[in-house]
Simulated scan of single mutants.
Amino acid sequence: MLGVIDKYILKRYLLSFSGILLLFIPIGIMVSLAEKIGKIIDNEAPLAEVIVFYGNFSLVIGNLLLPIMLFISIIYFTSRMASNTEIVAILSSGVSYWRFLRPYMIGATIVAILIFMMGMFIVPHASIGFNEFEYKYFKKGRSDRQTTNIFNQLNESDYLYVSSFDPERQRGYNFTYEHFDDKKQLSYKITASNIRWIEKDSIYSLTNYTKRTVKDETEYVQKKRRLDTLFAFEIDDLAPVSYVADTKNLFELNEFIDSQRRKGAANINTYVLVKYKRWALPIAAFILTIIAVAVSSVKRRGGMGVNLAFGIGVAFIYIFFDRIFGTLAEQSGFSPLLAVIIPNLLFGVLAIFLLQKAKR
């Protein structure tokens, strides 16, 4: 049962958070629009597509920054309460500091559920349109896929390789396809100077096709200038888009990671990192809430300005650590799980330290 103090603090918690959210997102849109308006005009992007893009932009960027916006909003309204000696009055009435924290934790739970639902189910859908527009108009000429030295294990028996891939023409060069038997012995190997997906016929066309089949220690060679055939892989298996994990919801992402792990995908850490970050963001809402309350519940000589400056500094440090460990996980084989746990663990320890200090 919520008491008067709970309702009062929770109301201010949610109103301040909503206010900061409604303030920062339009600012983000205006900054982005001011930076990219030239490319929008030069590339003649339709107005309807631009409007849809910035709707998706609000969801994608907003979800990413929700914990930080929450952090700043808590510092803002709690500092005002401290300046008005409201917190002193609450604690002097016999309310313990832990009891004082309860409405903040209720608010953090509400926001954490919002972050979870958005990150797992709403934002992935928005990411599709967001990234497609980015590469179509803002990153024109840049590929959204890995296009060189592509190796993929399709299953336990089949492997493919292309030295380069042209996503516009859906053509791969220096194609190799290897099939191994149950004893892990090479059964046959297909090579071609290029492989092209013909969408209207749903077939692959191979140029300078060569198939070498090994049977009873004898090699049989079959060659053709051109061969139209079928394979048990899709053209996206040659070069999936770089942001593919961002576009999948919770269940799709789990299935995708399992399939990529079976295939032996080289960039599996990138996909796993996306998954763990989605789980870490709701936890960050609790950690940052505790830090914000501990910092701003004490009345300081510098007032709200000091608390906000400290809060913005902590927010930037949090983002810095998140980026550093994320990059390590993507590029150096560092554990994606540790890359997500370490920043939250460090700031969790900081939250406990600041909370104990604030109680005294």
Rank of each mutant, 00 (worst) to 15 (best):
Ile5Gly: 06
Ser16Thr: 13
Leu22Cys: 10
Leu23Gln: 02
Leu23Glu: 01
Phe24Leu: 15
Pro26Leu: 03
Ser32Leu: 00
Lys39Gln: 13
Lys39Tyr: 04
Glu44Asp: 13
Tyr54Asn: 06
Gly55Thr: 13
Asn56Cys: 11
Asn56Lys: 05
Ser58Asn: 05
Val60Asp: 03
Ile61Thr: 07
Gly62Trp: 04
Leu65Gly: 01
Phe71Arg: 06
Phe77Met: 04
Phe77Gln: 03
Thr78Gln: 01
Glu86Ser: 09
Ile90Ala: 09
Ser93Ala: 15
Val95Met: 15
Ser96Val: 10
Tyr104Gly: 10
Met105Gln: 03
Ile106Glu: 01
Ile110His: 11
Leu114Gln: 00
Ile115Phe: 01
Ile115Lys: 04
Met118Cys: 06
Phe121Tyr: 15
Glu132Phe: 07
Phe133Trp: 14
Lys136Arg: 15
Phe138Ile: 13
Lys140Glu: 12
Ser143Glu: 13
Thr148Cys: 01
Asn152Lys: 10
Gln153Ser: 11
Ser163Ile: 02
Pro167His: 12
Pro167Thr: 04
Phe175Val: 08
His179Phe: 05
Phe180Asp: 02
Thr191Cys: 01
Ile198His: 13
Lys200Glu: 14
Ser205Met: 12
Thr210Gly: 00
Lys215Leu: 09
Thr218Asp: 06
Lys224Asn: 07
Glu234Thr: 03
Pro240Lys: 04
Phe251Cys: 04
Asp258Phe: 12
Ala265Phe: 14
Asn269His: 12
Thr270Asn: 06
Lys277Asp: 11
Ala285Ile: 11
Thr289Glu: 05
Ala292Tyr: 02
Ser297Met: 12
Val298Asp: 08
Val298Trp: 03
Arg301Ala: 13
Ile317Gly: 08
Ile319Leu: 14
Phe325Arg: 02
Gly326Ser: 05
Gln331Asn: 15
Ser332Ile: 08
Gly333Ala: 05
Ser335Ile: 09
Pro343Thr: 11
Phe347Tyr: 11
Val349Ile: 15
Val349Cys: 01
Ala351Asn: 12
Ile352Leu: 14
Lys359Cys: 02
